[in-house]
Computed example of a mutant assay.
Amino acid sequence: MLRKIESENMGSSNLGWLKSKFHFSFAEYYNPDNINFGVLRVINDDLIQPNTGFDLHPHRDMEIISYVIDGELTHEDNMGNKNTLGRGHVQYMSAGTGVYHSEHNFGTTLLRLLQIWIFPDKQGYTPNYGDYKFNWDDRKNKWLHMVSSKEGSAPIKINQNANIYSLELEQGKEISFPVKEGRQAYLVQIEGSSTINTVELSNRDGLEIVEEDILIKAKETSHFLIIEMKKPAELY
């Protein structure tokens, strides 16, 4: 099963310093039929102006992943972590029993990132932070496995049975991705346009995939992120 989510039908927000597209209900955008997709709770496509950002604020019991598309993201938290990441880099924070953090664009150009929240497999984990500066070329015309469960093989490991991959596919090329029985996935067309099986996707569109293998054909050079996970069950 495939279900396309067009970017123009998503929730949106414009605070001046921050413009966002909400793939799921978030902040002032609330749709009772669009709260989550399995353990995936949030994908926000954020555009953050230079010298602005999210000041210190709390989270708990959520696996939070930030994927930088353009610009520079500077993270700081009450665990003593501070780092700046660029295009194609990933940061991860397990909020667990509670953490305070800030996220800013201290660069001179617009920052675009995907903010992703995933429910953990249980509550009460000890808070944790990590980041990884992936080589951009490692996702050119092939899937780059960036995030996995603690039992998986990706460099970043989270407290959930889920995987995150990225891909840059050159115009005219094809690539497949399996979504097996008992699994589902959510794909974001970050940049470019493509045909996935029979579905046409444009820049910033989303696609729900349930137990169906997909074949991606790039109509123009395209950038993707996919979150693959077990089909829903009780979260706790």
Rank of each mutant, 00 (worst) to 15 (best):
M1D: 12
L2E: 08
R3Y: 09
M10P: 00
G11M: 05
S12T: 12
S13N: 01
N14C: 11
W17A: 02
L18Q: 05
L18G: 02
K19I: 11
S20T: 14
F24V: 07
L40W: 09
I43W: 04
P50L: 06
G53Q: 06
H57L: 11
H57I: 09
H59C: 03
Y67S: 02
Y67V: 07
V68E: 10
D70R: 11
G71H: 00
E72I: 15
H75L: 08
E76I: 08
D77A: 13
G80F: 00
G80M: 10
N81F: 01
N83M: 08
N83A: 15
R87D: 01
R87Y: 00
Q91P: 08
Q91D: 08
M93F: 05
A95I: 04
T97E: 11
T97S: 14
G98L: 01
L111H: 12
L113W: 07
L114V: 03
L114P: 01
Q115A: 02
I116H: 02
I116L: 06
W117E: 07
P120E: 14
D121V: 02
D121K: 09
Q123V: 12
G124F: 12
Y125F: 14
Y125C: 00
P127S: 01
P127E: 13
N128T: 09
F134N: 08
W143E: 06
W143D: 09
M146Y: 10
V147Y: 00
V147Q: 01
S148H: 07
S148A: 10
K150D: 02
K150F: 05
K150I: 09
G152D: 06
G152W: 12
A154Y: 03
Q160T: 11
N161C: 01
I164M: 15
S166G: 08
Q171D: 11
K173P: 03
I175Y: 06
P178R: 04
V179F: 07
K180W: 01
E181N: 11
R183S: 09
I190V: 15
N203G: 04
N203E: 14
G206D: 03
G206C: 04
I209Y: 13
E211G: 03
L215E: 09
L215K: 13
K219H: 07
L225A: 12
I226P: 03
K231Y: 03
Y236N: 06
